[in-house]
Amino acid sequence: MTKTRIYFNRWFSVAYHYMNMIRNNEDGMQFEIYGTHSDPNNMALQACDHAELEPKVTGKEYIDFCVDFCRRHQIDLFIPRLHMLDISRNTHLFEEVGTKVLVCRDIELMEKLMEKDHFYESVRELGIMSIPDYFTVSNASQFKHAYEALTNAGHEVCFKPCNGEGGMGFRVIDNSRNPLEELSGHTQNRISFEDAFRAFSSVESFPNLMVMERLQGYEYSIDCLADSEGNLLAAVPRRKAGGRLRKLEQNADLLNIASEVASAYRIPYNFNIQMKYQNETPKLLEINPRMSGGLHVSCLSGINFPYLAVKLALGYEVGPLNPQYGILGSHVEQPLIMDEQKVRSH
């Protein structure tokens, strides 16, 4: 039986799980998995049948590398993460070498999703869910104004880069910090207003930041699966339940938000909506048009999100899906002997 060839470029290490979920699918479909990463010891590469080192380049050079990789290895389906927007803009180049790409092709939407403040304005216009109070700033004076406006409105304040990913660059403004105590404790994502203002004042301007109200309630990731036209097939709200615990909940408000997002934006295949409550109101943190970092926990619902997205992208139908909710899940480390010969140089 001919195996379908799938390629992951530079992903998070949890792609190790996603590759194995695709490989160990419920239909017995056969896959050969290829991967590249700039770090030869990245864990995701250990799940690949074939792995290569990728160059530390950007723009057209990176696209050329990926297209050439797909051509050389006759890749059937490419699942990108790094430089996903550039790849979305150039799907035609991959199609010319016979490779489908599992990515949202709405370039305008992708550009908004990569700049969180632009996407917030899109959500505000549509009115499909609540967003935090926020300001976009690029210099110290704007930062001070935003901080004062939010605190005067009764909010605690945090900030993060407009184009950041995950928790990178996220800070909570906390003026009660004790730096001496923190030296002997865990590293924290907190900073005083004075320290932040001093740092921002050291430069004339900096890349756009969102200064926003800090949300105090439960935090959820809603892992979603849609077909190639963006029709929602399944959604699993996953709540942070302390430490590594995650609760898969049949939360009607969040399932309705997932349906509204799917109808409004038509994001295909895998996407993830991050929400956090303020009192009784869930508010948007961000939307990622890809598999989330915690998707393997949501797969405990019985929905094999990575494989089903692949199946859809390859043109197969996916029948009615019925996630199991009410599941408390977690994860543990697993020791693994590294195959030092896994990665080849091209």
Rank of each mutant, 00 (worst) to 15 (best):
V123W: 02
P132C: 01
K112E: 14
I131H: 01
E194A: 13
G166F: 03
K100L: 10
F65D: 02
K144Y: 07
G167V: 02
H155R: 06
Q188H: 11
L180N: 09
L150A: 11
L183V: 14
P55I: 01
P80W: 11
N163I: 05
S138R: 13
N152L: 14
L82V: 13
K60R: 15
T151L: 06
S192P: 09
R124N: 01
Y147R: 01
E182H: 04
K160Y: 10
H186F: 12
F135E: 02
D106L: 02
R72G: 05
F119S: 06
R177T: 06
E182Y: 05
S130E: 10
T187Y: 14
E125G: 10
P132N: 01
H83W: 14
M168E: 13
T99S: 11
P55A: 05
D76S: 10
I107E: 09
P179Y: 00
H92G: 08
L150M: 10
R124I: 04
K100M: 11
D64A: 12
G169T: 03
S130A: 14
P55H: 02
K56P: 10
F78Q: 07
R177I: 15
S141A: 14
G98I: 07
P132V: 00
L102T: 15
C104H: 11
F200T: 01
F200C: 08
P55L: 01
F170A: 04
E194D: 15
A149E: 15
F159R: 08
P161W: 07
F94C: 06
L150T: 10
G167I: 04
L85I: 08
E125H: 08
L93Q: 14
T187D: 12
T58L: 14
D133L: 12
Q74D: 11
R171G: 06
L77Y: 06
F69D: 00
F135S: 03
P179A: 00
V57L: 00
K56N: 15
E194M: 13
A199I: 10
V103Y: 11
I191A: 01
M114D: 14
E156N: 10
F69G: 00
E111P: 06
E194V: 15
L150Y: 09
N90H: 07
E148A: 15
Y62D: 09
Y120D: 02
M84Q: 15
E96R: 05
E181V: 07
P161Q: 09
A196Q: 11
E125C: 05
F143G: 02
F159G: 07
I63Q: 04
M84V: 12
D106F: 04
S130L: 02
L82I: 14
H145G: 05
N139W: 03
F119M: 08
V67K: 00
I191P: 03
C162Q: 09
E125M: 09
L180Q: 12
L109Y: 09
P132R: 01
F119I: 10
I79Q: 11
N175E: 13
K112F: 13
C158Q: 09
V123K: 00
V157N: 00
G185Y: 09
L126W: 05
V101R: 07
V172D: 04
A153G: 07
G98V: 10
Q188L: 13
T91N: 04
M114V: 09
G169L: 03
C104M: 11
I75E: 08
P132E: 04
R105P: 01
A153F: 08
N152S: 13
L180S: 09
V157H: 00
G166S: 03
Q188W: 10
R72M: 08
L77I: 03
F200D: 04
I131D: 00
E111C: 08
A199P: 06
K60W: 13
F143K: 03
D174K: 02
